[in-house]
Write a protein that binds this DNA or RNA. Structure first.
Lengths: 345, 345
DNA sequence: CGTTAGCACTCTCTTCAAGAGACTGCTAAA
DNA sequence: TTTAGCAGTCTCTTGAAGAGAGTGCTAACG
């Protein structure tokens, strides 16, 4: 589907780069001038019209320059940006900052936030994680065929467990729904220990069987929960022109303050994704509505293969991805390295 | 010096109240109307002119309404505001929020921040404190008379210790300065333990005597250091019209992110002040330049007589002091109470 | 056929002037 | 001492005009 010509890719890449820097719609003339392209503004205009058709650019109004769309940024990050390492001298600078700190995980983490904020000019987040016993949230019972029942259990984390069960006697869907309702009330928010202590009315083998399933599911489960959150660089963001309107700034700050939101975000991207490395979330990826104009660059850190938390940056969609991605990657690797070392001692 | 007539006080109080609510210059007509005063706008104008002369009000331009000055707010808070308790039903609401939380100091503190932010509509800060061993920062030696020398030692906290010492033999100021210089280099940033391990060149009784003084000073000293900082309600602030200009919002956010600044602020107001209770810092009290347009309401909390930290709110100078002061007081008392109880168990 | 110069057209942004509106300070009367 | 009345001041809004920036289209060019 990558039906873009090389020149179109070039135009898109340069336009994103230029727009990130200037925060103003980029015109054909400017682009050709600024990057000494060997074709004329008219040609650039044609390509830009093409890119607009493909959904990568838009004009704020007829006859203004172009601005990348969400899709434009995504294409840029995935295919055009390249995977540069952070320049050596910056790596050294950051290493130095870490070596000067006290040798203590807490310090490294809060330093990470500060370093990320400083080097990327946006807001930074670092979270620690720990696992917590799972709690029961919701149960649904679905009759499938004969005495077979599909048991769906939802944990407080949102995690879903499914299991089929064969009951002693067939029950109608209505009866199953009533029973599920009952269990939902009894077991609301309980953890494994509390569930163990529930005394069921005797003489209902179906109820007992289902409840046993619930107990087993919760018992074996752990839920990843964010612990501490370190934040830094909020003030940076307010320098960005996109936050000139206070209500936009407010929205972004609310995201930044909303632990539940951040937890969800980090869990979903870092822990439920199978691809390792740096994750870039552009404009909420059409999942998180509130992140409409916001982007994040996230990575996990930890000792060897054990993930201990997530770190990254948060900024306007017009963000220097080509700087942010290598920086986040480098810091996450550095912190992981430091933690591993300190654990081997 | 309180040379204001009763009516002037009334006008000032109402004007502050009204301005806090409306965030616009208040005119004589509006004031009389809104509060059904039994004198005419013309009279109000005369009083306002008087109050302007006294430095409590100003006009943003000729023939606009009036706005309170820093001094206006201070007078209001000190003399006019009254010392209302928080209304019973709000007290109950807040208590409820606390009783629903887990019974754990960390939770109480982060909850405090959230409650303060919510009820006062501004940003909230809660800090924990712990004492830490003092470290050496700087030494100055001043020759006073004959063999008498004034030893001035500065700790890392900024705390200053003075002591006079009588040396074996008189030294010139130049010699003293050199010696101080030498010690400053050797002992930089050392704590008591490190100072103990320093081996001095033998045969210099003066040096030894002075160094002994340094050791003793540092040894007995502890320094109060802020630990965790809980913040909440940042987003609230951006709703205030004073933060419509991004650079102002940025300045305030920078304060909020600047741990060193907050430490200094809290230490100076809460711990070096002798008056207990709630402290109101209006417009930086001409000490902290960066707090120019900002006000804080702070109080300490802790079990019985042991201060464990500080909490309070931070907002624009146009802040609802009459709501903030009782709220901060109540929350600080409530947290103290909860902590005391939990320690007695 | 792709590329490009030229140009008409569109839309925003700035500037300026005029007028409305909001308050004040002053004067003179109550 | 208080207050009605009023001239004067300053801001804010509105509208129109003009400059500026940039595009899309057309037609010419290699």
């Amino acid at each position: 589907m990558s039906g873009l010509t090389e020149r179109q890719k070039l135009v898109l890449a340069l336009l994103v780069r230029d727009y990130v820097e200037r925060a103003e719609p980029i015109s054909s003339g400017r682009l050709v001038d600024n990057y000494q392209l060997d074709f004329s503004p008219a040609t650039a205009r044609n390509e830009m019209a093409e890119l607009e058709g493909a959904g990568f650019l838009y004009q704020p109004y007829t006859s203004a320059g172009r601005i990348p769309t969400k899709e434009g940024y995504r294409y840029y990050v995935r295919k055009l940006m390249g995977e540069d390492r952070l320049p050596k001298h910056i790596q050294e600078m950051i290493r130095h900052q870490f070596y000067q700190a006290r040798h203590d995980v807490d310090d490294w983490l809060s330093l990470s936030a500060s370093v990320l904020a400083q080097h990327c000019g946006v807001a930074a987040i670092v979270t620690t994680l720990h696992t917590e016993e799972a709690r029961f949230k919701h149960l649904a019972l679905l009759s499938t065929r004969g005495r077979q029942v599909l048991v769906v259990i939802i944990l407080n984390s949102g995690e879903v467990h499914q299991q089929t069960l064969v009951l002693d006697e067939g029950l109608t869907q209505a009866e199953l729904t009533t029973m599920a309702e009952r269990i939902n009330q009894i077991a609301a928010k309980m953890d494994a220990k509390q569930l163990q202590q529930v005394e069921l009315p005797a003489g209902n083998p179906n109820l007992e069987a289902i409840f046993r399933t619930v107990r087993q599911t919760i018992h074996g489960s752990e839920v990843v929960v964010a612990g501490e959150i370190y934040r830094d660089g909020l003030a940076n963001m307010l320098s960005e022109p996109e936050f000139a309107e206070p209500h936009k700034a407010k929205r972004t700050l609310e995201i930044f303050e909303d632990r539940a939101m951040l937890d969800d975000l980090l869990t979903k991207t870092i822990f439920e994704s199978d691809s390792p490395g740096v994750h870039v979330i552009i404009g909420g990826e059409d999942v998180w509505e509130r992140l409409e104009d916001t982007s994040l660059i996230l990575a996990s850190y930890g000792a060897s293969d054990r993930t201990m938390g997530a770190l990254g940056i948060l900024g306007p969609m017009r963000m220097a991805y080509s700087r942010g991605v290598p920086t986040v990657r480098f810091v996450s690797e550095l912190v992981s390295e430091l933690i591993s070392e300190s654990m081997n001692k």
